[in-house]
């Protein structure tokens, strides 16, 4: 190519051409929880279980970390499962097939450590089931006897039941209100399995922080290797800002590069819980403004 720009003027603020990412399909799995399949060929090819992407919906959006629930390298798409929590995730959940989003970067984070442990229990609470799913698949592929415990508040919030069953040697559903499956918490189901004398070699637990903390306490007395996927607030997701730092074994770790999965018995859950509260009032402000905007439309 030859360019001999004669007095080539620079137009002010011409946007850098960006590849927008098209949404291929978007369906609600439960109230407020949406499964979104997006074009992202490079990521689809590279991703491994346990990794995540950061998504920025549009030019003024924040960078939101979301686990890659599934990928189709041939089609060049990845799937994310999003729970509407605040402004960004709710806005993402308004997107339909055919819409585009501005930025996706990934795959980020260290892949899950997968080996043949023997019997592996994968526990997901709420949208955590979506995050646990790809790792459950990888554990199965590695030859483990896989038990899944899929917990939700009530029947209509249970997600990925069919998918979980397909990768499990034993699959359990728990609901807090007893409207489906085992009546109780995932921790109780796990304790029941342990009490039944079943040998458990590995536990992966992903869900709300109190749930992960509780699981850690269940397995600690038995010395069962237990991993949890932490969800600190992130900005870049590449190890550049340190905002996602968590305390593991009394050391600072950056969850976006060293994690997000860590040994549950070494994690300082209290510090994570506290740090995640830093923007509570701003999050509320954003959510209210967004709700207002939606009502107007």
């Amino acid at each position: 190519m030859h360019i001999t720009g004669q007095n080539g003027k620079y137009p002010i603020s011409q946007e850098i051409e960006k590849q927008m990412h098209k949404i291929v399909s978007a369906i609600f799995l439960a109230e407020n929880i949406k499964k979104i399949e997006i074009e992202a060929p490079r990521i689809a090819k590279k991703r491994k279980a346990g990794q995540f992407v950061m998504i920025r919906v549009d030019e003024t959006g924040e960078r939101v970390p979301l686990t890659i629930a599934d990928a189709d390298p041939e089609k060049g798409t990845i799937t994310i499962i999003v729970q509407g929590m605040g402004k960004s995730t709710k806005e993402l959940n308004t997107k339909e097939a055919g819409d585009t989003i501005s930025d996706i970067v990934g795959p980020l984070g260290a892949p899950s450590h997968i080996e043949k442990f023997g019997t592996a229990v994968s526990i997901g609470g709420g949208v955590g089931s979506a995050i646990a799913y790809p790792t459950a698949v990888a554990l199965k592929e590695a030859g483990n006897y896989v038990i899944t415990i899929n917990g939700a508040r009530s029947k209509d919030l249970v997600i990925l039941e069919r998918e979980m069953k397909a990768v499990s040697d034993e699959a359990y559903i728990t609901t807090d209100d007893g409207s489906y499956g085992f009546h109780g918490f995932v921790t109780q189901k796990l304790q029941e399995l342990i009490d039944s004398g079943k040998r458990i070699d590995f536990v992966l637990a992903i869900g709300p922080i109190p749930m992960m903390k509780a699981i850690a306490e269940v397995t600690r007395p038995y010395n069962i290797k237990t991993m949890v996927s932490l969800n600190p607030i992130m900005v870049d997701g590449t190890g550049m800002c340190g905002g996602c730092r968590v305390t593991v074994n009394n050391e600072i770790k950056f969850a976006c590069v060293d994690g997000p999965e860590f040994d549950a018995h070494q994690v300082d859950f209290k510090n994570l819980t506290d740090r995640n509260k830093v923007y509570l009032s701003e999050e509320k402000q954003s959510a209210e403004a967004f709700a207002h905007k939606c009502n107007l439309q």
Binding site: M1, I3, I16, K18, R42, K46, D103, V105, G106, T238
Partner: peptide, 14 residues
């Protein structure tokens, strides 16, 4: 003619 690919983390994306 420089081609820019944002959102590409060397070591992770490629």
């Amino acid at each position: 003619g420089v081609k820019f690919i944002p959102n590409a983390v060397a070591g992770r994306s490629v």
